[in-house]
Design a protein around this nucleic acid. Structure first.
Lengths: 396, 396
DNA sequence: CTGTTAGCGCATTCAA
DNA sequence: TTGAATGCGCTAACAG
């Protein structure tokens, strides 16, 4: 890759980058003095310090090497954010972007930067390599399947860790120690921040039930990593790997159980959290279940696709089809989307603060943030029975 | 912060983290062997390797310390992305998110991760510290004011660098060397990827002129870092610090110059690239210039705000007010927004590839990507003269 | 195949 | 105030 000479027994300022030592030598002072000029100005005279900084500039020395400094100090000033999906569409989700933005902001206050760690889509490379090999002071897990290798790898690093929208595993065996030596208890360094996923979902489903809907479609986020999408069988539903998905589903079911019997849910799983996938799922769902008059979407992004599908089908919203999202993205108001709001920015901030606390040696309590139903224009009472609800065109 | 004992002359496995050496000692082998077990499996017998890995696990050793490894190897596997704005709203811009996503994806192919480097909003901390102190193999500048301290600091690091939507400075003096020692020529390690900002802008303005509009409002992105926003005076216009803003403005002006005389532009500057700021600017602009029948927005985000403003003012789009955006975000199609498309994802990919090339010691040619006008439903011919175009309600 | 050695570039005791 | 010495934890020669 590079042809840099690697001479073990080398002449001093051989190639490329200038070091602190060379600056010291050029000035005839010790390395400690130069180091102090940068790190402890009070340890030398202002005049000398000025001289040091000056010749450093002259030599083109840009200050202490961050890497060496980190090694020596034992801190990197970097916090890793772990995704279990390729980053390409971590960013495609506005809710994720929002979260990251506020997280970054709260960490910046402590001069910490964010390192994005994503499992590569490429199955060649080890998906654990990023978390295992990152030089970071702490790790934030944005969404990892429960009981996954990835989560295990994160906890195995025994770094300050914050789990977002995901319970902190209590079982030490996640660390997979098999011999006598007990693994360190990661919980001392692990904290969690979650929203009331199930509660919000319950409110959403309740709202539709109150409006008289009896056949309700559900557009699910992924149930597990790299699975297919499509209709959700009961078995599949039992082994949901992503916690938010599981919780929202639970919320929907709870509302259903509390409502009039005879109401039914029709579940379908999106492959990705994108509008176009939401559209595709909606089309498929309405095709196979024409009696559906309302849709519960696990994200506003998916709901946006549902709205598109309704439009292309000529089904007016909310008269013929009610749609509810989740997240309440900025922009959802323009769409007049009824949805479940979650405090995305605050979540980012709380995560940042939890990390800061952990870094400071404290153990912050787990945080649980509320959700709310925001009723806008995309939901209405179920169309009267007897009317032909969905006139679906035959598939193209 | 922590009470870790720092004993210089210490007993071997004192506290906390296990090291490679301790694993070696526990096994009675040399450190090289343990290192090889991780890095060069072909250098030892499978059996021994297994034994090594086993006892490592037993001891709770999670593999070589990434930091020390980086120091030794001279590579970190991290690429820094530099913003000149607080990250909190770097993410708020979907175009930025899209770009970052595809960038991350293309870098992941080479097992590189992205470190987000933003100048803190907090004026206390040194805004250059992040770029100066980041342990990275390369730097990508997403948007920095021309001739800024920040840009200088980036180039001063003499790392492989890719400038996005921004010309590569040719003037060596940006490095600010004042003494005899000439600074290294950064251009050997610097490459640029841009879009045809001006061309797209020209098409947009041309489109409005062709439709007969004569009084055109312009919603500008920030002209320079941390400035006020509001009406743009000619002086301000002459010293635009952000290259894309300058180029788009130039494109608008070019179309104007080529069109019928008498057509006028009314410029206003947004403080931030957000819908609500776009809305605010639109309101202010239409208030002070009621003859405006069309708006050129420098981003779709701003255009979205313009649409909102038009809606709240009761001005129908496009009958009473034409609106053009810039970027063509996913979602803009749903808004039926006429806009200038740019290859955001491809840009990210090209930037990634340029960085990879630089890292490989090559010097990739600068890349220039095309833009296109996408005409949708938000633009139409200028309303007939004589009609009271804007009946503005008095300000609330 | 395995062990020894010499630093990567720096921050920090401690003695001067 | 300043300087000399000691690793942070690891990898890459090279010698055995």
């Amino acid at each position: 890759m590079s042809s840099r000479s690697a001479s073990p027994s080398s002449a001093p300022p051989s190639s490329g980058r200038i070091t602190l030592r060379e600056v010291a030598r050029a000035l005839g002072v010790s390395v400690a003095t130069v180091s102090n000029a940068y790190n402890r100005p009070d340890q030398l005279s202002a005049a000398l310090r000025e001289r040091v900084l000056d010749t450093a500039r002259t030599l083109g020395y840009g200050g202490p090497d961050p890497l060496a400094r980190s090694l020596r100090r034992g801190r990197t000033g970097v916090i890793g954010v772990v995704y279990d999906a390729p980053l390409e569409y971590a960013f495609a989700d506005p809710a994720a972007a929002l979260f990251l933005g506020s997280l970054a902001q709260s960490l910046q206050a402590a001069s910490l930067n964010l390192l994005l760690l994503a499992s590569p889509g490429d199955p060649q490379t080890d998906p654990l390599a990023p978390v295992q090999g990152a030089s970071v002071d702490g790790l934030i897990v944005y969404s990892a399947a429960q009981d996954s290798e990835l989560l295990r790898a994160v906890l195995a690093r025994s770094l300050p860790t914050v789990l977002v929208d995901q319970p902190v595993p209590v079982d030490q065996s996640v660390l997979g120690d098999q011999n006598g030596q007990p693994a360190q208890d990661h919980r001392a360094q692990t904290s969690g921040v979650q929203i009331d996923d199930a509660g919000g979902a319950r409110l959403a489903a309740q709202h539709l039930i109150d409006l008289g809907h009896t056949h309700i479609g559900v557009l699910c986020l992924e149930l597990g990593p790299r699975q297919g999408g499509g209709p959700v069988t009961p078995e599949r539903e039992r082994q949901v790997a992503y916690h938010p998905t599981a919780e929202r589903l639970r919320g929907y079911r709870e509302a259903l159980a509390a409502g009039p019997s005879g109401t039914r849910l029709f579940l379908t799983e999106a492959e990705r959290n994108t509008p176009s996938d939401g559209e595709r799922c909606t089309l498929a769902l309405l095709q196979s279940e024409p009696e559906i008059t309302a849709l519960l979407c696990m994200s506003d992004v998916l709901a946006q696709g549902a709205l598109r599908a309704a439009h292309s089908l000529g089904l007016s919203v909310p008269q013929r089809l009610s749609v509810i999202g989740y997240d309440d993205l900025p922009g959802s108001a323009d769409l007049k989307l009824t949805t479940v709001w979650q405090p995305t920015s605050e979540k980012g901030q709380q995560v940042g603060e939890a990390m800061l606390a952990l870094l400071g040696g404290q153990i912050p309590p787990d945080v649980r943030l509320p959700t709310r139903l925001v009723v806008r224009g995309s939901t209405a009472a179920r169309p009267k029975t007897g009317v032909q609800v969905n006139r679906l065109p035959s598939p193209p």
